[in-house]
Design a protein around this nucleic acid. Structure first.
Lengths: 191, 191
DNA sequence: GTCTATAGGTGGATAGAC
DNA sequence: GTCTATCCACCTATAGAC
């Protein structure tokens, strides 16, 4: 069930709008103007806004899996893997956007139940991956961190999500994620 | 210019709704039902939704100043001060809400310019305070942290904002901010 | 697959009586 | 200060022609 050309362009536009404005601040009218069709035509591809949101999140989840798998393949150390993950988020930071998942999480209570679950799934998958990288790095002696990998993973995930939020809103223009990364690796490596 | 009883209740309701659902997901109708008046009456107190948002953020900013001043008075070490700040956010976490500022930051581009500036002001004020605490702690030998206080401050602020976001959305129910705090203090104290 | 037309609801906001 | 009544723009969604 590969998505059609139009469906893909609709998902692209929706994802961008969610990352820039939020789920409750974009409409079928916005999508229609962006893609160049009428609002009624969108319902052919995605019957309801919830369906569209779910499809976009599903794709976003797949993109995360791909990115993490690629990092696992190419990065040879725990440190390099953490840096690889930060880089994924830093790309979003440089575009002045926030993680789609963070955006949705901010309006969590207004979302359809299935979409809420997809948001939780994304965060869990992300956190679990970080946890594994830290645990592996600890076993192999790369990291000196003495605490529980699960705790550090939750803290890094928070730093990444919040970092995007803060970077866009505050007046200082330097990268926030660079600081998050520095502090985090500092912690893992210190005795 | 003390706010009237009704104006205060309207701001209370608006703040709660923003922290739970987001700026674009609450309406004058919601407020009217919560406070027990008609939607038209709200416009007497706050001509536009932007005016209301600005008033609520102004109050929120004052609450931050009060909280930070209180921590400065009562907490006697840098570590205690950081813990005091985390506690302020942890209160929000325990209510299953997120920082109003983080909520607004997620929909930043949809807000009136003045409201965007207020959000930035809140984050800046918060970050500056953390920075000062770290710098003081470094001078007095309490913290061994060798990096720039500004960088660490940005990272902690990110962790706090993101921690609230993550705590509400992910499946695991333990406190996320507790992990953020542990990792951060760990970093400051390690050599 | 996309269109026109339209329904039915909700959004923030205003005028004017009380 | 709060009300009723109303405006108009916008929202998601559907029906049915092409």
């Amino acid at each position: 069930m590969t998505a059609s050309e139009t469906a893909t362009r609709l998902m692209d536009a929706a994802q961008l709008l969610i990352m820039e404005r939020g789920y409750n601040a974009f409409s079928y009218k916005d999508l229609a103007e962006s893609v160049g069709i009428r609002t009624a035509s969108i319902h052919y591809h995605f019957p309801s806004k919830g369906d569209l949101g779910l499809a976009v999140m599903g794709r976003y989840l797949g993109q995360l899996d791909d990115a993490l798998a690629r990092i696992d393949r190419t990065a040879k150390s725990g440190k390099a893997r953490i840096k690889g993950l930060v880089k994924v988020f830093a790309e979003t930071e440089s575009r002045g956007a926030i993680c789609m998942c963070g955006s949705l999480a901010a309006s969590l209570e207004t979302l359809p139940a299935e979409l809420q679950e997809a948001v939780a799934e994304y965060l869990d998958r992300c956190e679990t991956w970080i946890q594994r990288v830290i645990a592996d790095g600890g076993r192999e002696g790369e990291f000196a961190y003495a605490g529980k990998p699960a705790e550090a993973a939750a803290a890094l995930l928070s730093g990444l999500q919040g970092g995007l939020l803060v970077a866009r809103a505050r007046t200082a223009r330097a990268s926030v994620l660079a600081n998050v990364q520095r502090l985090f690796l500092n912690t893992l490596e210190a005795a």
